[in-house]
Design a protein around this nucleic acid. Structure first.
Lengths: 132, 132
DNA sequence: ATAACTGTTATATACATTGTATAACAGATG
DNA sequence: CATCTGTTATACAATGTATATAACAGTTAT
């Protein structure tokens, strides 16, 4: 598995897990329908409690990233991740606002900020994903 | 004062305070050298505890946004906010990565993401701040 | 001087979040 | 039948958030 947790980070373990799985999907290392490790095995691999993994899975399920079936385990959502809707757009704006505010305070302009975003976007396209 | 706190939000009160003051600086409603309310008066205005305000002020001071003088109170940093340095760039990348990852999962591309950022940037330029 | 105002420090308390530890349950699969 | 799923239920400890009081130490205004 490609997941690495930091015990020193201020970010909660379950949240690190959520983000790394989302990043895995964005990287296309995880594909729709693909099976995820069971809560117990992933917990053991990472050396953490199964409830912590379960909490992360629950949150991923709630947001449509994965599908959990009672006795089969968890899968990346076979139908793909729900597309950006209005509610998500608002959540996105709310999370970007304070970040952009601080950037402005520190003298960054739209250009350099946009450039940084593009760098990060690029880092998620490892494979040859040429636009058609 | 322009600060409005939400008691229902999951974001901690001190964090809401920090972000709104940063946004106030970005909006240029708060200018370098300008005096902020005392911890006690702001706490009373907002109906919260003075320690909560103090915690926000401390965090703002730590990040160079304000200056606290022992018996005079708090001011927006007279020398301006410290410009984006390498450490900040890394912090910025770390905070943008999970946001952008989710955007990609939800089918947003660089163009629409950039557009959203520009919208937010624009919302911080209320006054006639034409670039020279 | 005195009173009123600063931030600061110190306790104490209450509550929620995070994370762990165990245990048991219920359904599916081998 | 044993084993593997997720699920649920407790209990516990540590930490973070927020409040409530109180006192201290300097500054400023009266």
């Amino acid at each position: 598995m490609f997941i690495k947790l930091s015990m020193e980070s201020k970010e909660p373990l379950y949240s690190q897990l959520v983000n790394q799985i989302i990043e895995g999907i964005a990287q296309k290392e995880l594909h729709p329908g693909e099976n995820l490790p069971s809560v117990r095995s992933l917990a053991q691999d990472l050396g953490i409690n199964l409830h912590t993994v379960n909490k992360a899975y629950k949150q991923l399920e709630q947001n449509g990233f994965i599908l959990i079936q009672r006795q089969k385990g968890a899968f990346i959502h076979p139908d793909g991740i729900p597309k950006a809707n209005k509610a998500y757009q608002e959540k996105l704006t709310a999370s970007l606002r304070p970040i952009i505010a601080e950037s402005i305070c520190r003298g960054m302009d739209e250009v350099s900020f946009t450039k940084k975003c593009q760098e990060i976007f690029s880092s998620f396209q490892k494979k040859g994903e040429s636009s058609k």
